[in-house]
Design a protein around this nucleic acid. Structure first.
Lengths: 154, 154
DNA sequence: TATTGTTATACTCTATAACTATA
DNA sequence: TATAGTTATAGAGTATAACAATA
């Protein structure tokens, strides 16, 4: 982790600070999850399926800010690993996504590994500071949804 | 922005909270920066060049956790836009990267646009809470570097 | 008409490996 | 030997566009 000189004018931008923090955490999580052959973002998707059993692919995709087509590939990958199952959905158009027993076990193992590695990363923060940070991030996310999403590329 | 049911066990993982916050901020920044035809990550790179004039491509890449080859394409893109220039580096092997006047102007316009849109996004937080959040994120990042990076894919 | 899943195709970003020049 | 830049190639992840089935 190389750190160049900082930009004072950007320190007041939440997006900038969060991006750099995410860079550090995501790369660490990538290394930790490498033995499980899954990316941090896909683990998040897996957990979302677990906690929202029966949800459809499009709904899952919207929660992750990806479109139907991308969600399709995502679910294909998770299903291919035996971690997620497509079952009948609420109507005949949609699938219902469910976590498998193997998925449950995989999540537990991965979360364990992540928790352990994070203990190292968060050392610059005291216990209280970490809790405060987690609380503030959750509060930020709970805010009003941003305006309807425009295409990413163009 | 769709929000599914949350996973209580993950709320204590900083990586999880930061990833979801980043998802929200990055997608918003993508939309805001779309007229400028640049991604949030590349804007960060552009700012890093400005604040570290003369730095080499490999150094820049390391700060962004990408390798030399990827940094190469990144700099190609920024140079192609006329925002960055390759000049002579500290030795004959390396380039020295410098921001152009056009790059300076582009940064100013983009930061303005981002600041405005963020004002909407951070509404769930009070002024004090936002400052506290920024401070804690900066403190987290200032911590010890994570262990040497392993390849992402395999 | 609108929505869900699906498929085919293309784009962005990053990685690996090998090469050249320099240190 | 090690490092900086470069090039060619491949992979992951996402997007668009079009189609079929269902609402």
């Amino acid at each position: 982790m190389i750190r160049l000189k900082e930009a004072p004018e950007l320190e007041g931008l939440l997006g900038y600070q969060v991006q750099l923090a995410w860079l550090k955490l995501d790369n660490n999580a990538r290394d930790v999850l490498a033995p499980f052959d899954i990316s941090p973002a896909r683990l998040t998707a897996l957990v979302m399926v677990r906690d929202n059993p029966g949800c459809g692919q499009t709904t899952l995709g919207r929660a992750l800010s990806i479109n139907r087509s991308s969600a399709m590939k995502l679910v294909n990958a998770l299903e291919g690993r035996g971690w997620v199952e497509r079952q009948a959905g609420r109507d005949l158009r949609s699938n219902g996504l469910y976590l498998t027993a193997a998925g449950e076990q995989a999540i537990a193992a991965m979360i364990d590994a992540l928790r352990e590695s994070e203990d190292q990363l968060v050392q610059p923060l005291s216990h209280d500071e970490l809790n405060q940070l987690l609380m503030l991030l959750a509060k930020f996310r709970r805010g009003p949804p941003r305006p309807a999403r425009v295409a990413r590329t163009g």
